[in-house]
Amino acid sequence: KLATQLLVDLAEGCHTHHFNSLLDIIEKVMARSLSPPPELEERDVAAYSASLEDVKTAVLGLLVILQTKLYTLPASHATRVYEMLVSHIQLHYKHSYTLPIASSIRLQAFDFLLLLRADSLHRLGLPNKDGVVRFSPYCVCDYMEPERGSEKKTSGPLSPPTGPPGPAPAGPAVRLGSVPYSLLFRVLLQCLKQESDWKVLKLVLGRLPESLRYKVLIFTSPCSVDQLCSALCSMLSGPKTLERLRGAPEGFSRTDLHLAVVPVLTALISYHNYLDKTKQREMVYCLEQGLIHRCASQCVVALSICSVEMPDIIIKALPVLVVKLTHISATASMAVPLLEFLSTLARLPHLYRNFAAEQYASVFAISLPYTNPSKFNQYIVCLAHHVIAMWFIRCRLPFRKDFVPFITKGLRSNVLLSFDDTPEKDSFRARSTSLNERPKSLRIARPPKQGLNNSPPVKEFKESSAAEAFRCRSISVSEHVVRSRIQTSLTSASLGSADENSVAQADDSLKN
């Protein structure tokens, strides 16, 4: 292990032709098999893994070397290190390495390699500790012929580059190093199909959405987006994914797998022009299946994007999809995704031109529960009313008269009656009930004795009459309010007539 670390330190600071010789020695160290011998017992696995620490030291050392060589000349050094790393990870899946030390190597290698970024000039870069990406002036992410390196360097940008540029090249004859992302992409596909350690798979799935944002990485080298989509959909639809995973937390289920895969599918929607129609349908189907899991909100957001990006695919699945959405409970976490999906859909009339009455009724059935102001915040309630109004205007004229009683009944049950079921009123009724029952229970537990009763009969009569009056008032709060309003209006009217009579009498006395 110490000798391997010494080789790594020497290679990191070497800029001459001896660098390749040092890498040859490190490569021989990495070539050791990580498969346990067949006769190895389970209690000896930890000791055997400790004997392979030099392999881990070599791989982690290459990660440090690549981070240094990416910004220094010659660029061919970075290319050689990158290829060695990718080849080593491929061996893991070729020979099915399952030892804990092998999983640790893959975890740290993917953690580093999935941080690679590219700008519009195809320059590769890595983020620093502050998250700012520094791009290399010597390494690009696409394949290029050595003699055409300078031509590639002087080509115009596709868009303004992001991030601070690296140091300027030493001279005009500098050759750019090619670090094609397709090599890593193929290893990522192998990981999605064969990885057995949940920690490694979770890391890859968590980092892929951010990497897919940099389309330069994908399009400048032959990366098959179709295969990526197929691998992701197979993970969700195939039963073998959960069987092969180990190291998963207790209670791990298909729902947890959906939570990890759906963000990658959402990021892949922007590549729909490069996906086969069959793959697009598979993607939409997987998102529909996710509606029954805890990732339902993410799936609804993804389907909203699909309705804009892939209208030809979503239009066929939309009638059944809208009916499925009615089975989702009206909760605060689902309110905004569902209502925004319906609001977006209302502005795309070509998608729902074939809707029948059942689909329009489903839209109103989804939106009406969110009009309850005692359960949802003001934004959700306003958005629900907006969706109902928009869809009522957009639905066909023959359907409107049939939906009017349905909508008014839903609004009455969710908006008007919600004020009668407020917690304050319920607590008031509970308190009044307890007050009504309390005197009775006290009389049963403690019967009054005439000799020891010091309270006069008049006081008892007053208290009983007050309790009886309170019971009468607490029967119905709404009736009490109505009666008080009527009494107030009658009182004001009587006072007004009394004032008029007094004024008339005063005038008569003055005349006399």
Rank of each mutant, 00 (worst) to 15 (best):
R117Y: 01
S159L: 11
A78M: 04
T57P: 01
V133H: 07
G61L: 00
A173F: 10
L217E: 02
S230H: 12
V216A: 06
L184K: 01
D142E: 07
Q190A: 08
K94A: 13
S237I: 14
L245Q: 02
K152M: 12
P161D: 13
P160Q: 14
F252A: 04
A173Y: 14
S103N: 09
P157K: 13
Q227H: 10
H92R: 00
R244S: 05
L245P: 02
L52S: 06
I105C: 02
L228P: 00
Q190S: 12
V216G: 06
S49R: 02
L73F: 11
F185A: 02
L203D: 03
L121V: 08
V59C: 06
A173L: 11
L184F: 11
P239L: 06
P222Y: 04
G206L: 10
G131L: 03
L228Q: 00
T79K: 10
K153Y: 12
Q227D: 12
N128K: 07
S159H: 09
P164Y: 13
R246M: 06
L212P: 00
I105E: 00
Y143H: 06
V179P: 02
R175F: 10
G251P: 05
D197C: 05
L232G: 00
E195N: 01
T68V: 12
M144A: 14
F135V: 04
Q227G: 07
S96C: 10
K199G: 10
S230M: 07
K69T: 02
S136F: 01
F185L: 04
L232M: 04
K152F: 10
S178F: 09
R123D: 01
C191Q: 00
R80A: 04
R186L: 04
P222G: 09
F185D: 01
H88Q: 02
S155Y: 11
P100D: 08
M235F: 07
P137V: 03
K56P: 05
S237A: 12
T57Q: 10
K202M: 06
V64N: 15
V187W: 01
P165L: 10
A248Y: 12
Y214W: 08
Q190T: 11
H95W: 07
F135T: 04
R123L: 02
L201S: 01
P74F: 01
L236Y: 03
S150N: 10
L242W: 12
V133C: 06
L242Y: 09
T72M: 14
F252Y: 04
H88V: 01
L232A: 03
F219G: 06
L124F: 02
C233N: 03
V225I: 08
S87M: 08
L158G: 13
P209D: 04
D142G: 05
V179T: 05
L232K: 00
L126D: 02
Y214A: 06
D197W: 01
K240M: 08
I89M: 09
Y97C: 02
N128Y: 05
K240E: 11
K199P: 13
K69S: 03
L124D: 02
K152L: 10
P127Q: 05
H122D: 02
T68K: 07
K215S: 04
K193D: 14
Q227K: 10
R213I: 04
E250A: 10
P239C: 12
Y71T: 03
D142V: 02
C223H: 04
Y214R: 04
Q227I: 04
S87F: 07
V216M: 07
S104C: 10
T241M: 07
H77E: 05
A231S: 09
P160A: 09
L62S: 07
S49N: 11
R175L: 13
C141N: 02
L188R: 00
L208Q: 01
R117S: 05
L115H: 14
L62V: 04
V59G: 03
S96W: 06
D130L: 07
Q227W: 03
P209G: 09
T154D: 12
S136K: 01
S234N: 11
S211F: 05
D130H: 09
A173K: 13
L116V: 07
A248M: 11
L116E: 02
L236I: 07
V200A: 00
P180C: 05
L126M: 07
K94C: 10
R80Y: 02
V225F: 03
L66W: 04
Y181P: 02
L236G: 01
Q190V: 06
E210M: 09
Q194N: 11
R123P: 02
C223N: 04
L91H: 10
R186W: 04
P137S: 09
E195H: 00
A118R: 02
L60Y: 08
S136R: 02
G61P: 00
C139G: 02
V55A: 03
A231V: 09
K193Y: 12
D226K: 05
I65E: 01
V187S: 06
N128P: 03
C233F: 07
E195W: 00
Y181K: 02
C139E: 02
Y143K: 07
I65G: 01
G238N: 13
R123A: 03
G149N: 12
S159Y: 12
K152W: 14
